[in-house]
Amino acid sequence: MKITQYLLRLYPRTWRERYEEEFLAMLEQRPISFLDGIDLFFGALDAQLHPHLGTTGMSLYERFVHMFATLRRSLLTIFCAYVGFILAGWAFQKMTEYDDFKEAAQTHSIVGLSFHLVVIGAVAALLAVLAGGLPIAVAVVRSALVQKRRGPLLLLATPILAFAIFLGTMFLLEAFHHPGNQHSPMGQMVLDRGLFFGTLIAAAIVSAGSVCFAVARSEISERLLHFAVLPSILATISMALILAATITWGLSLRDGAPQLFAGNNGIVGSSTIGTWLAIVIAMAIATVLAALSLMRGLSARSALRNVTV
């Protein structure tokens, strides 16, 4: 029964408020099998992707508020997925800076083509995020100025501050990095890398979180959210394109330049295969998250239109 309750927690809150009690009563009469457990998992996924399910008991206004909040949350999740994707994309860009990879891209056409596709996808995703996000950021600033609230403005400024802290940390690492340091070379390397990746990931999390918090606490018009859906679709498609191109890049590198692929030319001297796999996994997680959020957002937008019509 415990597993059932854990699985039920995967369902959206609105759905649980409406069906949980009778659902549990049904499951008490018939213990679930392993296949039923899988069915329950997919049922939860289905309910997450269709947020209008379970809202029949709500008033029109409550339904509107619920769908509006769901659409906003979905768009913000896509933004967070994009930030995570950027980190993986940045790792890919750093890895392919080495001359050996540039040479491979020139020698092997598929390696070169897939690399160009990654660049094209990155530009398209950035433009899409800017197109959808900038009007919302402007609305947050306007809303903060009208209501004379400094909080949202500070939250929007946080990414700049986080970036400055990241650059400051890099500067300090560079300044203290000299041969006469008391740490062993291995200890120094672990410290440097730990600080670098720790600061980078913390800066990304804090930046994405503060932007999301600012948007969630500001008055954003329904029109702006509707407008942001198309750029979100483009951003998600671009992420999927980059993911496919990155996978193709790795596979074609394995065939075209096996020694390079099997070498240690990954991030900070790690294995190329390991770095490539980690990048692909991170990109895949971010893309799946963005795609699921997009489906949920589209469903919420459709329900929102039905409520407002």
Partner: peptide, 29 residues
């Protein structure tokens, strides 16, 4: 019908107005 499939379908049918809930009998509706 698995429990997830059953209640997914019930929720849809209710949303579409094809079925309606009656007052709950204890915990069962």
């Amino acid at each position: 019908l698995g429990p997830g499939t059953l209640y997914g379908a019930i929720a849809r049918l209710e949303t579409q107005g094809l079925i309606e809930p009656l007052p709950a009998e204890e915990r069962r509706r």
